[in-house]
Structures are given as structure tokens and as C-alpha cells.
Amino acid sequence: MLMRCLIFIFVSLLLGQAQAGVKVDEQLRLQELNSASQQRIDQLEQQRQAAAEQSQALLQQAQLLEQYNQHLSAMTAQQNQQSTQLEQDLQELQYSQQLALPMVHQLLSQLQNFVASDLPFLSQERQQRLTRLASLLDRADVSLAEKYRQVLEAYQIEMEYGETIEAYSGALNQQQVNYFRLGRTALYYQSLNGQSSALWQADQQTWLALDDAANRELSQAIAIAWQEQQAPALLLLPLPAAKEASDE
């Protein structure tokens, strides 16, 4: 009887230990499952955060791209407007040039007529200037503004002739003489030996010989204007008759 009791107790202890071992194994498996689940949850959370950050970055890029597109559209519209305005300005400029270029040609033609009817001083120099201007106006590589400037410059030179006196050497009937210009009022010449001189008569298109007194005055005038040997003085030179009076 005692033996049976001992066997029963021993068997009970063995069963209890077996059941306790089973519970420990189950707890270990549960802990492993919980740990794996937590790791998976952590990985999913990291992936979610990464996806959220990427989504936010893409959204910001989309916003920046939209702003850039709007800015680009505004720039394109402004450039189109400027291009249209530039085309209009070019058309107006071309029209202005079509009007202005004939005016410059007319200015040169008037200057040519004026020089042709003026006193015949510095004829070669003045004619070369007019010829150069005529050639300049026909050049396509020179701007209208430059053409206009040079024509006005020629006008300025001609205007200055009327405010100055000048002496220079030049040819007359195949001989060298000294010329004296009194503004553009009178033109004289004197032989190199100083023995003879004359005054240009515009109405008759010829030279009028001067007497001895006028010839001496002319010598003094040439010395003042050309050689600068004497100080300016009052010149008692004869003047040509007014052309308007002769026409009447």
C-alpha cells in the first residue's frame, strides 16, 4: 500500500514537472512571437515615416515646380509683349528712316547748291567734302544717325567760314597765288610777288583788279590772317557790290 502511494506521488511529480516545462516553452514561444511582432511593427513604422517624408518632399517639389511654371509663364508672356513692342518699334523706326533719309539727302543737296553759288574759296577742299558725303549717304553699313551727324558737321564748317578770315595759297589760271577770304563777304587774291591783286565779283563771275592802295591793304590783311606777322587791325579793303542791288 505504501509503495503504491509513493509511486502515485512520484508520477504526480513527474506530470507536474512536465506540465511546468510545457508552460515555460509556451511562454518562451510567446515572447519570441511578441518580439518578432514588435520588430515588424517597428519596421512598418519606419517605412511609414520614410514614405511620409518622401511624400512631403515630393509635395514640396511639386509646389516649387508649380511656382516655377507660373513664373516661367509670366516671363514668357512678358517676353512676348516685349517682342511685340520691339517689332512695333522697329516698324516705326523703319518708317522714320524712310522719312528721314530723304530729308538728309535734301539737306546735302541744299548744301551743294549753296557751295556752288558761294564765293569760290577752298573749292577743291569743299567739293571733296561734298563728294564724300554723297558717297556716305549711299552706304548701307552707315547708320542714319551718323549720316545726319556728318551732314550737320559740314553745315557747321560752312557756317564758321562766315565768321572767320583766312589766307591760303592756291592755283589760279595755272599759277600760284595767295588768297584772302573775309568771312564769306569777299574773296581776294594776290600774286606771290605782291605786285597785283583782285577782288572776286560774284555777280559777274570774274575778278576785278585792285589799285595800288587796295593792294597794299590786301598785303597787310594776308600778313595778319595767314602769316600772323602783324596784330589784327582795321582793314580798308574794297568790297564787292551787293548782288541784290545789281539784280534790281
Rank of each mutant, 00 (worst) to 15 (best):
4 R>Q: 12
183 G>I: 01
123 S>E: 15
136 L>G: 00
194 G>R: 02
172 L>Y: 10
23 K>S: 08
182 L>C: 04
60 Q>L: 09
103 M>C: 08
241 A>R: 12
69 N>A: 13
168 Y>G: 00
163 E>D: 14
141 D>Q: 00
67 Q>M: 11
238 P>A: 02
100 A>L: 15
55 S>W: 10
12 S>T: 07
227 Q>W: 05
63 Q>H: 10
127 Q>H: 13
17 Q>D: 05
36 A>I: 11
128 Q>N: 14
119 L>A: 04
178 N>Y: 11
78 Q>D: 09
114 F>Y: 15
112 Q>I: 15
183 G>S: 04
6 L>D: 07
60 Q>V: 10
56 Q>P: 03
191 S>E: 14
35 S>R: 12
232 P>F: 07
67 Q>K: 12
62 A>W: 04
230 Q>V: 06
120 P>S: 05
61 Q>T: 10
84 T>E: 10
176 Q>G: 07
225 A>T: 01
94 Q>V: 06
106 Q>T: 12
98 Q>I: 09
194 G>N: 05
176 Q>N: 14
14 L>M: 10
77 A>F: 03
44 L>T: 10
40 R>E: 13
66 E>C: 03
226 W>A: 13
48 R>H: 11
160 E>C: 11
196 S>V: 11
48 R>S: 11
215 N>R: 13
112 Q>H: 07
221 A>N: 01
122 L>R: 15
76 T>A: 09
212 D>G: 04
